[in-house]
Computed example of a mutant assay.
Amino acid sequence: MMIRCENVHEAVALALERIGRRVFAMSHIGVGSGNRCLNVLAEHAKKGEIDLTVFAALTLDRPKPPEGNQVLASIYERMYGDYTPFHFLEECAGAAASGLPIPDYLTYHSYHYAPGLGRRIPGMQSDYLAVNFRDASECARSRGMNMVVMKASYRDGKFNCGTNVDIMLRAINDVKKQGGAVILLENENMPFSCGNADIPIGCVDYVVRDDEPLFIMPHQPLTVLEHAIGSHVAGIVPDGATLQLGIGQMADAISFWLVRRGRSGLNGYSELISPGFLYMI
């Protein structure tokens, strides 16, 4: 039976009563990560109350403005001040910067690092899991995953995976089959995705209303170099080609120049709909 909780601490406490000391928690990739739940779990682990493993990807951190730039500092505070990062990663970064080993009160496995994370925190690289995105849920299940924590949208009486519909439904079903716990952070800012993205009510154990702003990724203007590369690539792509485009400045540049060069009959293949694809539609 689903229980609506007053706060994250209550939801985590109820979940721990149910599953015990050993916790293997999987979280949503990117903006949907249940960081507030992960932080409470980490508090329990730091006190020695649980043995915690976290399995996540692209766990986003608040960017830091250039030192001494007050204008950017105020902009960053307005954009990211209410966003909750995973504090364990901040502790790891601080330890690495001081030449100390990273904290060992939990194990953090990731299959998709944020840019530069492995170089910034070398001690984390030994826990990196090199698995394909499609195999991430099976990788977690085989290691004893017994908890899912994530942000979710809620509309018309249905919870929805929002920004990560591909592997989280399978992870939720796997956790429920093993008697684990599913905690959702219901967030009105989370998009509602169509198709096979709804989370069955029977699979949800604990829900906390948490409408913190989602992480905002700044969209930088294209540089002259990126325009040059995009123009060159677009020149060798024929009409009717099938494109695999990801995210980022280079994909945007190529998309822009494909349109400028009047390419037609193009097909797209991607794990997500990026701004570049939207520009070409």
Rank of each mutant, 00 (worst) to 15 (best):
M1V: 15
I3H: 11
I3D: 08
H9P: 04
E10A: 12
A13M: 07
L14H: 13
I19F: 13
R22S: 10
G32E: 09
S33R: 05
N35K: 10
V40H: 02
L41I: 08
A42F: 05
E49G: 14
T53F: 02
V71P: 02
L72D: 04
L72A: 04
A73Y: 02
H87G: 01
H87Y: 06
C92L: 02
P101S: 15
P101H: 11
Y113V: 02
R119L: 10
R120Y: 08
S126R: 14
Y128Q: 03
L129C: 09
S137A: 15
S137H: 02
A140R: 00
A140H: 01
S142M: 14
M145V: 13
M147L: 12
M147D: 03
M150C: 13
K158R: 15
K158F: 09
C161L: 14
G162Y: 01
N164H: 03
I167Q: 06
I167M: 08
I172K: 00
G179M: 13
L185G: 00
N187E: 08
E188Q: 14
G202N: 08
D205F: 03
Y206L: 06
D210N: 14
I216F: 01
P218L: 07
H219F: 09
P221M: 12
E226K: 12
G230M: 00
H232K: 14
A234E: 11
D239M: 06
M250L: 13
D252V: 13
I254T: 07
S255Y: 06
G265C: 03
N267H: 10
S270M: 07
I273L: 12
G276P: 04
F277Q: 13
